[in-house]
Nucleic acid binder design. Sequence first.
DNA 1: CTGTTAGCGCATTCAT
DNA 2: ATGAATGCGCTAACAG
Lengths: 339, 339
Amino acid sequence: MSFVNLKQLAGELGLSSSTVSRAMRDSYEISTATRERVKAVAQQLNYQPNPYAGSLRNNVTKTIGVILPQLDNHFFSLAINGIEEVAQQNGYHVLIYLTHDSGEQEKAVSKYLTSGRVDGILLALASGTRSVGHLEKLKLMGVPIVQFDRVSDALQTATVTTDDYTSSYQATEHLIKAGCRTIAHLMVSESLSIGSRRLHGYQAALHDHQIPYDTGLVLNGRGTNEDNLGHITQLLQQRPDIDGIFASVERLALSSYQACQRMGLSIPDAIKIIGFSNMETASLLAPSLTTITQPAYAIGKEAARILFQAIIKHKPVLPTQSLELKSELIARASTARKG
Amino acid sequence: MSFVNLKQLAGELGLSSSTVSRAMRDSYEISTATRERVKAVAQQLNYQPNPYAGSLRNNVTKTIGVILPQLDNHFFSLAINGIEEVAQQNGYHVLIYLTHDSGEQEKAVSKYLTSGRVDGILLALASGTRSVGHLEKLKLMGVPIVQFDRVSDALQTATVTTDDYTSSYQATEHLIKAGCRTIAHLMVSESLSIGSRRLHGYQAALHDHQIPYDTGLVLNGRGTNEDNLGHITQLLQQRPDIDGIFASVERLALSSYQACQRMGLSIPDAIKIIGFSNMETASLLAPSLTTITQPAYAIGKEAARILFQAIIKHKPVLPTQSLELKSELIARASTARKG
DNA sequence: CTGTTAGCGCATTCAT
DNA sequence: ATGAATGCGCTAACAG
């Protein structure tokens, strides 16, 4: 890989490399004539400064790292779209790392980043993460971190999340108002922030409507889709009184849908399903499925924005900068639509 | 951001930095005793070598760039999963760039990469790309490039694609065998490789079954989803004889589905729809929708694998290494399933 | 087995 | 307005 460097360019121009360097950066102490000549030849020779040499020199990498569980999930794909856009606006590059929800992987990744590879980090926690020591270390070394969607309260940073509690409350209430009395909740790992927040919203709605909270109706949907499909089917068989399902994540909503279809339960007559889903088309393809859609794109953008503010101003990321964005409840069957 | 560097570590150990450097890289000319002592202290002090200093020195970045149109599309999300996995296996980092299908953006991005920022590039062409001069330049400078999914034949590199022609042929045939005689084709930009290949498969199937090719049945689905929805509706109104639709990409399949529903056309009785879609759940949510699913994850993995081979062996990427992977036709309504 | 030295490409002092 | 010299952190060639 042969790229033309500053020295070669300077040689071509009959100038010293320092002059060329200054010309390229529009230094005021360079005559307009030479500046233009330099730029012309640079263009012609396709000169691009080596970014890593610059990083070494200036201690700035112009790169951020994004750590996420997976990408086979519509939420994170959309979030990245937002992140990448803001990064590009700020002239930044984006390194991406997938943890596959493994705490070990997350630890390994944070180790890579303990080396000045990036100027800041956007993080959606792996569900397998137990302790946040590795992230704490990064933070202590001065690497700004902003968490989004799946956050750890133990790690004191700004966070950008959805109104998980409120929208879960509303989702549950939606089912109650539609006549459901025995509502199952399919949750994700309780150690995940979204897991417990969504559970709490569900519990609160039940409580406010004088429906007793029944642990037997709560299913923990870790494991593969196959597994979950089996467990849900089992639950529905054991508890034929279930008339509503609130799924806390997309894949559980889809598994419920599938389970009900297999069992011949008609939706929404025999049973109603509401679930988080960021696949805008889900409710289009299956109008009987009511969805809660997160503002994934906006979450990505906001998280990135907060991070860049910190990076550019050389200030730490404060928990007080945290944001909670609203999700949208889409119920096509009943044509109701709330913010 | 204060990281401990080699010199500091060496000072702490009372050794020279070169000895420490060698010890860290398990050089054979270092005694086991010192090596272990060095590693112990390095661990304790949390020493991580500065990757950019190494890049500068060794002219190796341990980073690849991935350029794609968007991520709000299931195919690319899954592909990235595969790419990232292979990259991590090879100890590589992944920079991601989105072009939003703009040729200009793509040009800008390739300019960033004309600077030794990456050791290789994985590329899915933007639909807005007219000339590939910017990519040719990169290639000429010795940056290995592997194209996937949306490829340019003008750019001579290895490519990893789906069997677009064959699967389009089969999709069209599937409709014909199901009794359709007037089949609309919703295509993407003809300048895109997938656009023309899928069109040709459609044409060939019609031809082999003695059905005349009717230009009036081919709709170019650029533009927003709203636009497309309008155009499809219009087409269906103008041509009530249409009894089948073959959509060349996911969003057009969904728009057709939506259009038919709005017009009260029952699927699959009045009209049958088959379309490319990598949302494994699409046909689950809408069983009447027959889908062609690409092996997105495998495509990502294979493309990355080819690239890393070239990088590691310092050899150019040859067009002869190209791969064409099979997609899968999923028809739930009729329970037919072909490879 | 370990230390000294030089240089990757760049930006920045300090000279002129 | 321009050039020479230095050092960012690291590795490798060259000494011992």
